[in-house]
């Protein structure tokens, strides 16, 4: 029958229209600024820099190795190394970035920087409200705007952040244990040297030469 298809189609449209008043499945949109769809845990938008503790200047994990700058596909990251070294989270002296800029008008949210970073320093943010009247400066994020605390990272990507924290804590414990062992060995060596000086005929004690075995990782 001519027009049968139209009638069938209109029936479906009507069903969806009236259904949207009582059936949540048929209401597929939300009223955006007031209602929001909750962010997915893996969601990503633009990168940010993670820092530990309270002070972004002290706790920044980034060591300015510039791997992300080289690997970034659209080349939107710009880093200048600082001239002085500062201790990082495991106490090792590392450079810090003096300048760390990300041009989010160029960034394509691909997450390559996060993947290549060996220091868990750069992560993906879920914030997407970057609207600004300043076309260039407003979209050029500097180090201060990029730095966000680890607590924020844990809030937006809970599972991922927990894994990262665990790995970093293990590394830190290992480094601390190693530092402690080194210090002990050094102290013992100094003690034996002092003892050797004190007594003209050195007595080989059964425990010397004591090199503390590294504790189990």
């Amino acid at each position: 029958m001519l027009g049968e298809g139209i009638i069938k189609g209109m029936a479906e449209t009507a069903r969806n229209f009236f259904g949207s008043y009582h059936d949540a499945d048929r209401m597929t949109t939300v009223q955006f600024p007031e209602d929001r769809i909750p962010a997915k845990e893996n969601a990503r938008n633009f990168p940010f820099l993670v820092f530990d503790g309270e002070d972004p200047a002290k706790g920044l994990r980034c060591v300015a190795c510039q791997i992300c700058e080289k690997e970034c596909p659209p080349k939107c990251i710009y880093i200048v190394k600082d001239t002085v070294k500062k201790p990082d989270y495991i106490g090792k002296l590392q450079f810090q970035p003096r300048v760390f800029d990300i041009d989010v008008s160029v960034c394509m949210s691909c997450q390559i920087c996060v993947e290549v970073c060996p220091f868990e320093a750069i992560k993906m943010d879920t914030d997407y409200e970057f609207g600004t009247a300043d076309r260039f400066g407003g979209l050029l994020l500097n180090k201060q705007r990029l730095a966000k605390p680890n607590t924020y990272y844990r809030k937006i990507h809970a599972t991922e952040a927990a894994e990262v924290d665990e790995r970093l804590a293990a590394e830190k414990a290992k480094a601390e244990a190693k530092a402690k062992a080194d210090a002990e060995a050094k102290a013992r060596a100094a003690a034996t040297a002092a003892a050797a000086k004190a007594t003209p005929t050195p007595v080989v004690s059964p425990t010397a030469p004591a090199i503390a075995p590294a504790p189990a990782k």
Binding site: K40, E41, N42, A43, R44, M108, C110
Partner: peptide
């Protein structure tokens, strides 16, 4: 696309 987003973080540019 929701499935893709929860898997990869992005709806269309999955990478």
């Amino acid at each position: 696309l929701d499935l893709f987003e929860s898997l990869t973080g992005s709806r269309m540019m999955c990478n």
